[in-house]
Nucleic acid binder design. Structure first.
Lengths: 331, 331
DNA sequence: AGTATTTATGCAAACGTTTGCACAAATGTT
DNA sequence: AACATTTGTGCAAACGTTTGCATAAATACT
């Protein structure tokens, strides 16, 4: 099938290519009559501009990259969903690139973004990322970067995050307000900045209460969380925790397995509070009380920031989504 | 920052653009020495070809589209994950487009794919899609389409599916083999072809057993499934189903809520069998027995088919992933 | 009627590649 | 020594747009 180009339309109407081009963009120079004819023909021939030619000429495109460890997960799918929605609304296309938490693949993905001269890139760091040099080099290409969720420590980058500090603080306060005295707090991978922040904030609050016993654990997976929680809820343990705090869905899954296996009643025998986007907590019965860390909201926020970057009206900074408590029946 | 082009390299080395271009692709015409010099300089200058120019010239690109109702879901995230993995391995980029089950957005997404002259498009139909005309028109653009999961009935299209018929049949046989006599079978949205197929196959098997009571239900959401299952497990019901079949994760979630609320013991009071990619069944305790419908496998399969299409070595047909029983403790 | 201004259109270069063809120099063949 | 072939390189067109500038025709101003 012959492709329809400006040239083709120009040929049919006996106009020059430039006139057709301008007519299609309703340029003031072109007469009403000509515009009408051009639009009409373009419509019937189903003309669609060649994006490659446009991008080549204008040195701009409508591509946004999204680099993250994995699409499938507890949180990222809704983040992607939100970002894609906004892309669609604003005429951008979203390219998804997974790193599998592999630093080399992360660098490759960056390269792809650069090669394609994307207008901007969202990045959630892989757990393996040790150096930011590839990202710094990337910035020279003048392509804005917006980090989300797993972000670099340095604040010379644009970051959007759930307010981890606020959330963890809120979590600690809530648990204490219920007069819990023997708390098991399970956090994620120790290397991640998100873990550090949540841990520190949580700690800061509970440490104020001298009479409260607090057990801190760090887990890298659901399975790991299951094993670790086992130690505290094993049948031989006489005094079991009266509250468990889970830093994430991943942790929650492991903990719940243990509790269910040992037939620990919730909230009678122990309370639970988790941080989550809300899907998993509602699966369980009773529904788990959680502090919402919405991937969806974060996605919207990240897109807004990206748009500002692209339009050059952005201050480099870190912005947060607000934390909300969603009441289940478990605290 | 000045961008590095062939022209630039040519200028520095006092060569023509065409020589540089050929040298970089190790064309046989170019002398070893020249190749060396060109490669070296390209390396140090960090040359990266302008994809837009390449695509414009070659009329090809490495973009694949993925149109589906929503990124976030029970199944799609792992499908996307698999497809992206393969894309990355094969030098393609994946563009994700959500339809929110809106027919108009679906058409828009198709348009975007056409405008960008993508090399191929994966499609999971929205629940609202009533006409295939937009897709047929699309085929004229000679862009291969590979449908997955929610596919059109007509077999003039390329389709990759979990083997719904086989899976549902397997499910029915399994339940019967356990001597269940009062079965509740809950299916998804009645309009979807996937529902029709699963229902029909399931029915065909159980109908052979005259002495078995079978209750069929169709639900459009988890909430709906919860309400519907309520009718069968309400405390006033004397004879409750001794087995429940759930067509999908969505259904399972609703059913489990009901069972847990009414403290129905599994598998003592009732058995459960579901179809799932495996994530959710393993969340519950005991872990739910399921027939695996792997989004991941399906993604791999879809990509293989797409590659064949793109390379023109494809017969239009429908291919299936194999169904596997994964033993939990609930049947 | 002559000049200035407006209106509508076209020319041609540019974006960065790829590639058929031409060509000059080097080498091989009689 | 004359010719044929191989080897290495460059020219220029093409892909489909956009856009500064030139220009022709129509209108307005003295």
């Amino acid at each position: 099938m012959e492709t329809i180009t400006l040239k083709r339309i120009a040929g049919v109407l006996n106009l020059s290519i430039s006139t057709v081009s301008r007519a299609l963009k309703n340029h003031a120079d072109i007469s009403a009559e000509t515009k009408r004819r051009v639009h009409e023909l373009a419509e019937t021939l189903d003309y669609e501009p060649n994006i490659n030619a446009v991008s080549l000429r204008s040195k701009k495109n409508m591509l946004l990259g999204l680099i993250l460890p994995s699409v499938s997960g507890f949180f990222y799918d809704s983040f992607i969903s939100a970002v894609e929605e906004e892309c669609s609304l604003n005429g951008y296309m979203l390219i998804v690139l997974q790193t599998s938490n592999d630093a080399q693949k992360e660098i490759n993905s960056l390269k792809i973004c650069r090669q394609n001269r994307m207008s901007g890139v969202f990045v959630c760091l892989s757990a393996q990322t040790s150096s930011m040099s590839a990202f710094d080099k990337f910035r020279e290409a003048e392509i804005p970067l917006v980090f989300f969720d797993k972000v670099p420590d340095d604040n010379k980058y644009n970051k959007v995050c759930t307010d981890d500090e606020e959330s963890a603080k809120l979590a600690a306060e809530l648990i204490l307000s219920k007069n819990k005295k023997n708390i098991l707090a399970i956090f994620g991978d120790e290397n991640l900045s998100i873990t550090k922040i949540r841990f520190k904030a949580f700690q800061k609050i509970v440490a104020l209460q001298k009479e409260v016993i607090i057990h801190n654990e760090f887990c890298s997976s659901s399975k790991n969380a299951r094993e670790v929680s086992q130690k505290y809820f094993h049948s031989k343990i006489k005094i079991k925790p009266d509250a468990v705090f889970c830093m994430s869905d991943e942790i929650l899954i492991g903990v719940m397995k243990t509790l269910q296996l040992h037939q620990i009643k919730i909230p009678e025998n122990t309370s639970i509070l988790t941080m989550s986007d809300g899907f998993l907590p509602k699966i369980y019965t009773p529904e788990i009380t959680y502090i919402e860390t919405s991937g969806y909201k974060l996605g919207k926020l990240a897109f807004t920031k990206m748009l500002n970057c692209v339009n050059g009206i952005n201050d480099v900074n870190e912005v947060f989504t607000r934390s909300i408590l969603v009441d289940g029946k478990t605290l």
